[in-house]
Amino acid sequence: MGISIIINSFVQLQTNDLITVFMNWFFNFLTSSIGRKVIMSLTGIFLMLFLIVHLAGNLQLLIPDEGEKFNLYAKMMTTNPIIKVIAYGNYFFILLHAVQGILLWSKNRSARRTRYAVATGASSSFASRNMGWLGVVIFVFILVHMGQFWFKMKFGDLPSVNYGQYADGVKDLYTPVAYAFKQWYFVTFYVISMVVIAFHLNHGFQSAFQTLGLNHRKYTPTIKVVGSIYSILVPLGFAIIPIFFFFFR
C-alpha cells in the first residue's frame, strides 16, 4: 500500500518532469513560427559555410597532378576525427534543414487552402517564392552526389594509389570523379543543380540575416550585395569543375 503510493507518486513525478521538459520554453520556442525559422536560418548559415570549405577542397581537382592533392584531401576528410564530428553535424543539419523546410512548407500551404485564380510574380522574386521546390531539387542532387562519390569513398571498393605518405596508399576518388565528369548527362545534371543552388542561396543568404533580425539600414544593403556575390561565385566554382573535366581533361 505505502510502497505503491511512493511508486505512483514517483511515476507521476517522472511524467510531470517529462512534460515540463517537452513543454518547456525551449520546446515552445523551437516550435513557434519564428523558432522554426531560426532553425532554418542557423542550419542554413552552417551549410553555407560548409559550401565554402567544400568548394576549396574540390577546387584541388583542377590542379594538374593526376588527383594527388585531391585524393589526399579526401583521405583527410574521411579520417580526421574532428572533421568526422563536423561531418556528422553537417549531415544532421542538412536533414534538419530539409525536414524543417518540409514542415514549414506544408504549414504554409495549409495557411492558404484556396489558391488565387490569377498568379502574378510581380511583387516578389522567383527564388523567394520557390524555396521549397528549389530545396527538393537540391535534396535530390545531394542524394545522387553522395551516392556517387561519398558512398563510394566511405563504403565502396575503390582502388588505392600510393603517394608515399601512407603505407597502404589512399583511395583513388579522383578517377571515378574524372570518369563521371566525362559523361554529358552528369555534367548537365551538376550544372543545372548548381543553378538551382544559386537561386536557393541568393534568397537564403539574406533571408538568414533577416530571420535572425540582423538588419540595419546601413549594413543590410552590404549584406545583400555580399549574398548575391556569394550565391553566384560558389555555385559557379562548383560548376566549373565538371565543365573543365568534360572539355579539358
Binding site: 525559422k37 504549414k107 510581380a122 523567394s128
Partner: peptide, 14 residues
C-alpha cells in the same frame, strides 16, 4: 493559423 514568414517580401511590396 497564419503561415510562416519566408522573407519573400511580397507583403512590403503590396
Amino acid at each position: 493559423g497564419f503561415g510562416m514568414c519566408s522573407n519573400v517580401g511580397a507583403c512590403e511590396a503590396e
